[in-house]
Amino acid sequence: MTAIEQDRARGAADGRREKSTRPSRIFRNPMAKLASLPMIFTALVVFVGGTAWTVFYSFTSSSLLPRTDFVGLAQYERLWTTSRWIVSIKNLAIYGVCSLVLTLVIAFVLAALLDRKIRGEAVFRSIFLYPFALSFIVTGLAWQWILNPDFGLQGLVRGWGWESFSFDPLNNPDIVMFGLLIAGLWQGTGLIMCIMLAGLRGIDDDIWKAARVDGIGTVKTYVRVIIPMMRPVFITALVLIASGIIKLYDLVVAQTNGGPGLASEVPAKYVINYMFQAQNLGQGFAASTMMLLSVVIILIPWAYLEFGGRKQ
């Protein structure tokens, strides 16, 4: 090793004498490389290494401690026969679809309304965005209180004299996911609205003028001209919402803690429960690998659209 390096050094020195070649590539701007070490460590060891480690150990029978005792796909078979996991997936699907559609629709409509040169735009924007500054824990606890069946919304309406009124999502397994959805939308739509508003502001004013000269109505201009032009913004929003949905955890812990029963369990919570409470690491690893897989399934088409399309 040292011999080779000496060789190389000598070669470099010879070269310099002859035609002043650059020093060996590895030793060029050493400071930049030194300064990038934390990034390289994070990227390679934590992100790639950590993920690979988890995937690797998902094929073992690790329980209390990680063990290299391979059991093939047994953890996955068990995972997909565990009703709690199945319920988690179904819940996330319901929450995900609703959240995706409603966030996009609400955020775009609000952004479009704010873009109509209205008075008090800054005030409205602050109102719609402030929940985003709050944690999911705070969000979940606040909505848990508002949806409290005795003192919250239901109690209020019943107090008005409508005795049979029933809106108790946090204790009704059928609609508990919508209880979470109300809180999730409250917290997250503001951000997407801001992104959409920025997108709308980025549209050339002349396009609006051209549409007016052409006699296209406002709504039709949005639908036929503006929304197609905002495709990249919508895709960004989609990726953001989707990656947020998969990570859904804190909100559930705070608002329902997975209840009533298992009715609002979600995959992320499954992983953490099995890894850190049930001491069944293998299940946790298998479940988190499934989460990783779902992200890959979402990301690949997006990356393809975003970066594959650009080359043409």
Binding site: S36, M39, I40, T42, A43, L44, V46, F47, V48, G49, G50, T51, W53, T54, V55, Y57, P66, S243, I246, K247, A268, V271, I272, M275, L281, G284, F285, A287, S288, T289, M291, L292, V295, L299
Partner: peptide
């Protein structure tokens, strides 16, 4: 490395939690 870092931002934390514990 930068690309890996950015892709890493999309990986669910759950897959990295336990290795970090170790």
């Amino acid at each position: 490395f930068f690309t890996i870092l950015i892709i890493g931002a999309f990986i669910p934390y759950q897959t990295m939690l336990y290795p970090i514990v170790i």
